[in-house]
Design a binder for these strands. Structure first.
Lengths: 397, 397
DNA sequence: CCTATTTGTCCTGGACGTAAACATAGCACT
DNA sequence: AGTGCTATGTTTACGTCCAGGACAAATAGG
């Protein structure tokens, strides 16, 4: 079933360590890799050589500022790319993301109505065909990552429920794979956002982090636990939006009452500053500019409820940092002191005082980076898997 | 800082895999180890040989029931032991636990008052000295594990707060190590209970499990995430008892109102069946025997509130199983249908329907097994570390 | 007693990383 | 401009480890 151990296992791990370091921590000198990976110069040389032969990294000379022989820079090859797709209610966004985390292209295809799965597939195929010249030849397309606003069983590639898209109990991986002829992975958007923020964003470098994102469709999130993303039994973990914070409160579409996302809600914020959904971009400015009592009251109300949920999560996870995205980030900006104080005071025995609260650092590229990261994960774990000529137009032997 | 990789790293991992398998999954034949560890007969032979030379495992012949050469049984040596100590408000319990998970001795030392740290240390030393004949000579004492009813920073061995013991901001590892002259680890009792249940108890074999324990001192718990125990940044994770389930409810000692443990509470249960604290053992029988309205109402009230918390946790963790210990197990037994239905209905999109609810399988030995497991963890990860003659009465070369 | 089957043991070969010696490339000082 | 210093890449010898194959051992079934 699983591969034999052998000494090749060691090599796999070391190749993985080097490639992962180059991917996550930007270009690094070989000397830096020696330190970071705890390997000798000889071994790093061999590993970088192999990765270079596989086309996964390349080296550049660098003007040395220090005494001693200059160490070449090892770059993760940005020509090794993943496609990233984020279907949403009003658009399907397709991205091309290179190893190293750069988003090379980002194409937002606006839809007149909520896209069906079939439409999302067709749009994606069309956009990718439009990019084919760009992708062809030199680039190596590893696969496609799907960021789905809903519950996704990552193992089997099934969407259990994506309420706002109206997708339910469908295999999403199959159709995309069939249409594009490449490996496809799918996961919940907030889970992928967590991944992205934990690697390249505000939670980078923390082993235990929480991420909560607030959007028009509710609140989702994810956790990094001991450096690893929390998936749960089937990839559904991180539904922080349905934590009950006001029992007997408003009815939630999930069936319960008083879920966090029925109370802490972008609609309520828009309403107090007289904006509509289309003007969500201006929410932050409007909130900060309007200091009237109803506005302040609503900010406080939502801040306090959010703080209860965050306090619960601190008690549960004991994280080092909590990253807030979307309108939750706006809420943090609107009254950081209050949220900070409430989170510090809530959890047992002052645990909350040590938790950092940060806004998400990645903007529009968050989900594309996260989805690509899910694709890269396989390669990073097993760099040699790139070997059997896995070009975009696959041809089985 | 950390050790170099080398091929010895492979050996370490393989030794660890074999020893861990023998420890967790009882005696196994070498043939079974070959399958389980994905290694060849030659390698398993070498590994078992080395572990045997280290005194960590031994082999026995077995009457083969199958055709073919019989494969010897590999047993984790139960003569390699850990001491386990659980200080509580009315007693200090000391145990001797062997590799393989057997509790060889369990000595409960009742105290007339809540023990101070100093008293706990002295009691432990006295009990261990009483066991010295038993421990001396043939046995190999790896160290001592402390199960503390409170917040423990496992990394630094500090108790942040153990409210019922009255310990606060004290180094617990230091005094015990000084008094006993052996390595000491400390952790929260519920965290260790989680570990024990996940290895030898009801959660064995599950990669994603939750454990909640209800005692006179409140509700604590822990999680297994992707097969690994959830620790958090400093080991404080798993404080499920302080999840707010009824905002504005009763004041909790933690400062907030309506924490789970202020509402779901053994005192309230004892009260409705007219028992006092000392009669807690009889709670289950009393609850099941008394079918009066006030009793049923209190059971339902607590069941419903517990279900809210469990529903939140299912949304957060997406676990395969939830294990309930202490009076929470009693509550499950009292009205399994109701709790089951509420947990199934609560979480989003029917996630709860797939979650198993089980009572804790380990009884009085739970914490001793868990504390010992924390001690064994180091050995299991690095079996060769046993080498430099680490006898109970240590004698540096 | 013989055969099939399963498993332990021994031996050889290949893969891998380490360590140490050597080579190289830039800086800094004179 | 030259010389030494220093940090780093490169090459080679060596040890460890595991896989795989040949052989031996031990048992059940006929």
């Amino acid at each position: 079933m699983s591969e034999r151990s052998g000494t090749e296992d060691l090599r796999r791990r070391n190749l993985s360590a080097v490639l992962t370091a180059a991917h996550r921590h930007g270009p690094l000198t070989r000397a830096a890799l020696v330190q970071r990976c705890n390997l000798t110069r000889s071994t790093i040389g061999a590993l970088v050589g192999e990765l270079s032969a596989l086309g996964l990294v390349y080296e550049t000379d660098v003007a040395a500022a220090r005494v001693g022989r200059p160490s070449p820079m090892v770059h993760a090859s940005e020509r090794v790319v993943a496609l990233a797709v984020n279907p949403d209610v009003d658009a399907v966004t397709v991205g091309v993301v290179g190893l190293g985390g750069m988003v090379h292209r980002r194409i937002r295809y606006n839809t007149s109505s909520i896209p069906s799965l079939e439409e999302a597939v067709n749009i994606t195929r069309a956009v990718v065909e439009g990019l084919s010249v760009e992708l062809a030849g030199s680039e190596h397309v590893l696969g496609l990552g799907l960021a789905i606003p809903g519950l996704v069983n990552a193992e089997v590639g099934q969407v259990l429920l994506a309420p706002h898209l109206g997708w339910k109990d469908v295999d999403v991986v199959g159709p995309f794979r069939q249409a594009l002829g490449m490996p496809v992975v799918a996961a919940n958007d907030a889970t992928l956002g967590t991944l992205a923020e934990s690697i390249f964003g505000a939670a980078a470098g923390y082993s235990d982090a929480l991420y909560l994102n607030g959007s028009a469709s509710g609140i989702g999130g994810g956790a990094i636990v001991g450096g690893q993303p929390l998936g749960g039994a089937s990839g559904y973990a991180g539904e922080f939006g349905h934590m009950v914070t006001r029992p007997g409160g408003e009815q939630c579409h999930c069936g319960r009452r008083g879920c966090l996302e029925t109370e802490v809600n972008v609609d309520r914020l828009l309403k107090v500053v007289n904006l509509n959904h289309a003007q969500a971009e201006q929410l932050e400015d409007a909130l900060l500019a309007t200091q009237t009592f109803p506005v302040l009251r609503e900010i406080r109300r939502q801040t306090d409820l959010l703080a209860i949920a965050l306090g619960n999560l601190v008690n549960v996870f004991n994280p080092q940092i909590i990253v807030l995205g979307g309108f939750l980030g706006v809420l943090l900006a609107a009254d950081r002191e209050r949220l900070s104080a409430a989170v510090a005071a809530g959890p047992i025995s002052g645990l909350g005082t040590k938790v950092r609260l940060e806004r998400a650092a990645l903007g529009a590229e968050l989900l594309l980076v996260g989805a690509a990261e899910a694709v890269f994960a396989g390669l990073l774990a097993e760099p040699r898997s790139v070997a059997p000529g896995q070009e975009s137009g696959a041809s089985p032997s």
